[in-house]
Design a protein around this nucleic acid. Structure first.
Lengths: 141, 141
DNA sequence: TATTGTTATACTCTATAACTATA
DNA sequence: TATAGTTATAGAGTATAACAATA
């Protein structure tokens, strides 16, 4: 991309985030999935079974827009949706064995995409960047 | 956002980039503009007059999708589109006085949004993050 | 023949209003 | 009355095919 705008960190974040999303999307299209689908699988893999609203918060998607995402995963047998007996308004989402298996296989491809995206930075800077982004994510409302 | 996924730097980038874009979009909606419109104004403010294709590269938007973005800015009198006499296929984009004025006023609001987004990080970490993102942007194809 | 910009189109992503059922 | 999830819809973002003018 030769010359760049460096005026705003927020802009760089949005710009590089879009690039990252684009690469994920291209990779996931082979599996007929979108970045949000993988985000749901990853979040369930990370925190275990969770209510749908919790997952929405974790992946940063409005609950109303999460419905269709989870719906597809359920129809594919990757995620199970069960009414919570303690509060029957709530639906608990759980990874199925198929879902966990697919997630494991996708992680390799995720890592490959990652290496291409971050390949220009030396290892210690990649770690530094990861740490800063993780901390920033924790500070958000 | 309490607990987070920290498995992948690319994911954090996409996640925080979406958050950043969302905040920009909310701010810019008051001016009936989108993040892409501001990106065009910023890029012209940064590199001076430029061909449309060059701007497309700078803001990371396909030239076919840039047409409508620039078209709106032109109709609003913020950007001028002139045929390049040296190569009449090319259109040179230039900020008008109105465009430059609006850009200056928007920068304050951009900074305010930025402070809210990055407020959780101490100053030296914000600088570090900015440097890493700028370097990463330079390494991309 | 290749490049710059354009038109048109379809599909995804995001935001929001209004609803159901449960609490 | 408030909350979890849903339905439906409109707008913005993105990708791609086909084209005109110019080089």
């Amino acid at each position: 991309m030769e010359e760049r705008l460096d005026a705003s960190t927020g802009y760089l974040l949005a710009r590089l985030g879009a690039e990252s999303r684009r690469r994920w999307a291209r990779m996931l299209a082979e599996h007929q999935l979108t970045p949000h689908h993988l985000a749901v699988l990853m979040s369930l893999g990370h925190v275990g079974p969770a209510h749908q609203q919790r997952v929405s918060e974790l992946i940063g998607v409005d609950p109303r827009n999460t419905v269709a995402v989870v719906g597809l995963l359920q129809r594919r047998g990757l995620v199970e949706r069960a009414v919570d007996p303690a509060d029957r308004r709530r639906h608990t989402l759980t990874l199925t064995a198929d879902g966990a298996g697919l997630l494991a296989r996708l992680r390799e491809q995720v890592d490959a995409v990652e290496d291409l995206l971050l390949g220009g930075l030396p290892g210690h800077e990649r770690d530094q960047l990861h740490g800063l982004l993780a901390r920033l994510a924790d500070t958000l409302p």
